[in-house]
Nucleic acid binder design. Structure first.
Length: 96
DNA sequence: ACTATGACAGACG
DNA sequence: TCGTCTGCCATAG
């Protein structure tokens, strides 16, 4: 991993509008990373100061250890979760 | 060099 | 729709 990619991932995440969400895979594809796992790794490192809570799994469920807080933050922006799962068809951000 | 470990995703039954 | 299995790829030990 190089700084170049970290930087683009941060931009991509920062670009997600409030009230919308994206999946790890969406971000990976958008910045050209080969695996969605890498996005999670990057957010684990410098996710601080970014709207990381707008990034979910492809299933609409957040990562286990973050579930509670992440869903709270999303709810505060109007993103409602059903049974701990967000409706991607409705909130997914497809870019500008 | 090898194995285990994840903020993951897609295929399958 | 859900649980499981397999592929994924950088890191750590």
């Amino acid at each position: 991993m190089n700084e170049e990619e970290h930087e683009r991932v941060r931009e991509a995440v920062a670009a997600i509008p409030a009230g919308r969400v994206a999946t790890y895979g969406d971000i990976a594809g958008r910045v050209g990373l080969p695996s969605a796992r890498l996005v999670g790794r990057i957010l684990r490192e410098d996710g601080v100061d970014l709207p990381w809570h707008r990034v979910l799994r492809a299933t609409g469920k957040p990562a286990e250890h973050l579930a509670t807080e992440q869903l709270t933050l999303l709810a505060a922006e109007g993103v409602i979760a059903r049974d701990g799962r967000v409706d991607l068809r409705r909130y997914r951000w497809e870019g500008p």
